[in-house]
Design a protein around this nucleic acid. Structure first.
Lengths: 108, 108
DNA sequence: ATATATACTATCCTTTAGGATACCTTAAAG
DNA sequence: CTTTAAGGTATCCTAAAGGATAGTATATAT
């Protein structure tokens, strides 16, 4: 994804959180604190497990989320925002706020 | 793009400004006020004219930017933020701020 | 014995975004 | 009479994102 070579800070941030699902996942984690795989799956109603796995892995390798595995059967894995992920909080709120406002002013 | 049916405000906003270039274009317009086609092309150094045209057309049909055509030869077209586009200002600043901060704390 | 639950992985396929390159128009400048 | 300039279009192609579906492991519940 060539994340290193973005000179523009906006472009850099887009490369970190861009795509159809990442901001929504981060938003769910910001709201709920901790989420499990299937909880996220239900909240992102059209996502397939393959796609969700990949998005989570990318967020993890970019250091935005933590993945906590419990050695239990059936498996239990919890996702949460890392400190870096938490620093996206006000950005996430801007997305929420803008969407709410737009939808309120352009109903239906 | 099914923009109407996004229930989640974050998802809705992502559908409006998502993609590799849209936020960067909006950011350039926010900074400079008015930009011409080839000015944007130079600022988004790897974009092809076809892609830039499409991004601009989508932003225009979503009501985020204005397109002002002057009947001159050679052609002159100016792009600027609409009022709705201007309402993205603080969201754009969050992207800029987060990117700058990340890059400062993770140098090289 | 069978079903259920979780958190996946594997394989294959479709869709969408984006890139490369060439070309168009018209007027003025050299 | 050729070049340059602006703001594109047209055609074709590649790459990346994402979707569909099936399957795995293992313990507990029925």
């Amino acid at each position: 994804m060539d994340k290193q070579h973005s000179q523009c800070p906006v472009e850099f941030t887009v490369n970190m959180v861009g795509g159809k699902y990442k901001l929504v996942i981060l938003y769910q984690l910001a709201i709920h604190g901790v989420r499990r795989f299937n909880e996220l799956r239900r909240e992102l109603s059209n996502i397939t497990p393959r796609t969700l796995t990949r998005q989570l892995r990318e967020l993890e390798s970019d250091g935005l989320i933590n993945r906590q595995v419990y050695s239990e059967i059936p498996p239990k894995v919890e996702y949460s925002l890392s400190e870096t992920g938490k620093s996206l909080y006000s950005l996430l709120l801007q997305f929420e706020k803008w969407g709410l406002n737009y939808m309120a002013n352009n109903p239906k």
